[in-house]
Nucleic acid binder design. Structure first.
Length: 494
RNA sequence: GACAAGGUGGCUGAAUGGUUAAAGGCAACAGACUGCAAAUCUGUUUUUUAUGAGUUCGAAUCUCAUCCUUGUCUCCA
């Protein structure tokens, strides 16, 4: 029997503003769509937070036994620099700047995106469709919205008629905006004259002569509007209605609002049951922006080669740090906070290793089953990973106490601890043990062992000057000695 | 300016009306271990929840005002 039949999962639905009991449209199956990146630059650390948040959702749904189809797109066309008529495609602009073919740009940054997410131990989505691979479907969707009377052609472009749509439906239902307010706040930009109303958005755009990325259509040569691809690809792979749609908070308006409008205009019903939005990441309390230098690339975070942080951080530490906050909260990225997470992460991993060495007793001093359920309760409460992590540290206390013979645990309870810790840490949270041993060859290990021997000989004759010199020199080289009752061991620090 | 989400201890970050009220991690302090450290383990400490008023038997949690932060309103996860 799958786990989800015993657990009640609640999801905070941005559409209703409430935590709702999760009931998939098809029993046992979940369709989830998350807006992927526009691959015109190196992946932004904030993007990574969003994708880690939804990786957690994906992992937990799978852990509960759902069959999940997770679709995440790659935007490789249609995303304009601005909405003005002369707006340039982001990919094309970057291609011009880097003197590359647009598809070389797409390839380069898609590879970077995949590499980075893999470092964070994100699972790949079930399907990763591209906008340029679905031009035909996008044209068909535009046609059907026109047929339904909710879009119009103007000068080779096709626009969605927001006011018309709003007569029978609610444009602004997700972002809690009123069309009247939008009208009041819209400036009259020059160059938007082909639209009936300024808040209408493009479904298809006419390609100006200098535009490289272009496709033939019933309205002339052009390219699809940015909001359209997500509607079309989610519809194609998940159906007219699906369970979960995720993305960053900043996409709520206009992007997701437009998706609801497009899907409804096309199929006569809203496309998504649960909307989820991951919040933003700030750096030292301020928003990340390239222009102010308050910005960091994942690659520089892992290497330590940056102006913002004092040292390098392992991707798993960063992931752990991110999961220590709720996905709905703004999270601030700072050196101090990362150092704290790193320590906590190591403590957690140490305890998991210790789990293998515990001695069993005839009875248990604690209720391990209740603890296990509290882990699930945390995750069932809208994927509350910080509370789950607090529970895991609760187990760390048990494990250490048992190790010091201050707490008795039965073999069965130790087994429950092992499987639950492993399930939660590695399957659900997606953490990875930092494997330092593999970085070193055996020759090097032997050399360190030799030095430890020499130091212990010195200690035996109380030549502490010599022994401390060895210890300190090794530490400088990044080898941390650990004297315990069982002898001296070491690990690599950074 | 409009709209949205927030402002909790030295830092990070849970908890949204109720047992002697504020999880967990880090830091600090103490103890164990050590030749001394480090590492590890154990214990302790701090705040009264931006500010001011209100609702309530009772509020961090609801209402109002003020200040501040972040986001959206043109593209952004």
């Amino acid at each position: 029997m799958p786990l989800y039949q015993n657990q009640t999962l609640k999801i905070y639905n941005s559409l209703t503003g409430e935590k709702e009991i999760f009931e998939p449209l098809n029993d046992g199956y979940v369709g989830m769509y998350v807006c992927g990146p526009t691959v015109y630059s190196y992946v932004h650390l904030g993007n990574c937070r969003t994708f880690i948040s939804f990786d957690l959702v994906f992992r937990y749904l799978k852990h509960l036994g759902y069959k999940v189809r997770y679709v995440r797109n790659i935007t490789d066309a249609g995303h304009l620099e601005n909405d003005a008529e002369e707006g340039e495609d982001r990919i094309t602009k970057k291609a011009r700047l880097e003197q590359l073919e647009p598809m070389e740009i797409v390839q380069k940054y898609t590879v970077d995106f995949h590499n980075t997410l893999q470092k964070f131990n994100n699972l790949p989505p079930s399907i990763e469709p591209t906008a340029t691979g679905h031009i035909v479907e996008q044209i068909e969707t535009v046609k059907s919205i026109i047929e339904n009377g909710l879009a119009y052609e103007a000068n080779g472009s096709v626009y969605f008629d927001v006011l018309k749509f709003n007569e029978s439906e609610d444009y602004g239902i997700l972002s809690k905006r009123k069309v009247e307010d939008l009208i009041a706040n819209t400036r009259d930009l020059a160059g938007q004259s082909h639209k009936k109303n300024p808040q209408d958005f493009a479904l298809w755009k006419k390609a100006e002569p200098q535009h490289i990325m272009r496709w033939p259509s019933p309205w002339g040569e052009g390219f699809p509007g940015w909001h359209l691809e997500c509607t079309v690809m989610s519809n194609k792979y998940l159906g007219e209605q699906f369970d979960i749609h995720g993305g960053g908070m900043d996409l709520k308006f206009p992007h997701h609002e437009c998706e609801i409008a497009q899907g409804t205009a096309c199929n006569g019903k809203p496309p998504v049951k649960y909307w989820m939005h991951a919040n933003m990441l700030t750096l030292n309390g301020k928003k990340m922006a390239k222009s102010t230098g308050n910005n960091i690339l994942p690659v520089d975070l892992f290497s330590g080669d940056n102006e913002v942080l004092s040292k390098a951080y392992h991707p798993s530490v960063v992931r752990f740090f991110i999961l220590q906050a709720n996905y709905k909260s703004i999270l601030d990225f700072s050196d101090e906070a990362l150092i704290a997470s790193e320590k906590g992460f190591e403590k957690l991993m140490n305890a998991i290793q210790l789990l293998e060495k515990l001695t069993t007793s005839k009875s248990s001093g604690i209720d391990v089953k209740a603890w296990k359920q509290s882990c699930y309760d945390a995750m069932n409460d809208d994927f509350n990973s910080p509370v789950l992590i607090a529970q895991l540290f609760e187990a760390v206390k048990y494990i250490n106490a048992c190790h010091h013979h201050k707490l008795e645990l039965t073999q069965e309870d130790i087994q429950t601890l092992k499987t639950t810790m492993s399930d939660m840490c590695f399957d659900v949270l997606g953490l990875q043990k930092i494997d330092v041993e593999s970085k070193v060859d055996s020759k090097q290990n032997e050399l360190i062992d030799l030095l430890i021997d020499l130091r212990n000989q010195a200690r035996a004759v109380k030549d502490f000057k010599q022994s401390d010199a060895i210890r300190d020199r090794l530490l400088e080289l990044g080898v941390q000695l650990k004297d315990t009752a069982q002898g001296t061991s070491y690990e690599f620090s950074n």
